[in-house]
């Protein structure tokens, strides 16, 4: 069996005395589209943030592409990772944020080309070509020279997705990408994510409250609660025939609004 591209091995995350991730075991296969659902505070976003190296871990080991993420192998032993190792590992991951986090002082085009040029060393022309390709993918070609302040929330998030894709990551992390959007703008962002899921063999990890969407694009759905995966399976299994009471309780509360 091929190695999973992401593997959490008894991962613990603590904030002071509060345990957010409780010896979490979690794997993702290459090319898999996994959605994580669950109540707030269950640790869903923390999983993504730890993968993106925005947060450290308090215990356990995470492997990305077979190599430890927050640790380095030194003389056959695992030591805490240095910045150089983290930078190397980060190249495999890209993240889309709930608040978009675009750089407001740069045009859309520059938001897309800045990292490829400064971090990957692409030439101005190469970065621009890549950026224009991505703008076409997300349907924002005519907005290339606008500033984020001139775009709607949905447009900004689409730029956010393009910006992350510009670094050609193997794994894309979506942290509640539509939660901060007005309802009528959610669709345009979900369309882009849908296209990504269908046309590319990217590994995608999605945290969302959009249950219908999750059902549509996921290979697997994980129900998170209090720091652990309580139940996981195909969308049909989880949404159609949930086993645990907690899962049923959560799903009925969430789908009441739909």
């Amino acid at each position: 069996m091929t190695q999973p591209i992401i593997a959490f091995d008894k991962v613990v995350k603590r904030y002071g005395s509060h345990v957010v991730l409780d010896e979490l075991d979690f794997t993702v296969a290459q090319g898999e589209k996994v959605t994580i659902i669950g109540p707030s505070g269950s640790g869903k976003s923390t999983v993504l943030r730890i993968l993106m190296t925005l947060e450290t871990i308090s215990g356990g080991v995470i492997r990305v592409g077979g190599e430890p993420l927050w640790h380095e192998e030194k003389n056959g032993e695992l030591a805490p990772a240095g910045e150089a190792h983290l930078r190397k590992m980060r190249t495999q991951l890209g993240m889309v944020f709930q608040q978009f986090n675009l750089f407001p002082h740069m045009t859309v085009l520059r938001n897309l080309t800045e990292a490829p040029r400064c971090v990957l060393g692409l030439s101005k022309a190469e970065a621009k070509a890549r950026a224009e390709e991505l703008l076409q993918l997300v349907g924002l070609t005519e907005h290339a020279n606008k500033f984020p302040g001139q775009l709607s929330g949905g447009q900004q998030q689409r730029v956010g997705i393009a910006r992350a894709l510009a670094m050609r990551p193997r794994i894309m992390l979506f942290d509640e990408p539509t939660s901060a959007l007005d309802p009528e703008l959610v669709g345009e962002v979900l369309n882009v994510i849908r296209r990504l899921a269908a046309e590319h063999d990217l590994t995608m990890l999605l945290v969302t409250h959009e249950m219908r969407f999750a059902r549509e694009i996921s290979d697997r759905v994980c129900f998170f609660d209090r720091g652990k995966i309580r139940e996981q399976g195909t969308p049909e299994e989880i949404f159609g025939n949930p086993q645990l009471d907690r899962t049923k309780q959560f799903l009925s509360a969430v789908t009441e609004g739909e």
């Binding site: 925005l54 930078r87 944020f97 986090n101 750089f103």
Partner: peptide, 25 residues
């Protein structure tokens, strides 16, 4: 802080994040 997180996610070095992202803002 969000800006620094976005910069980190895109693999900017802390110095690049300061000069290209934080200072201009």
């Amino acid at each position: 802080r969000n800006q620094y997180e976005a910069a980190r996610a895109l693999n900017f070095t802390p110095r690049q994040a300061l000069w290209r992202i934080a200072l201009p803002q």
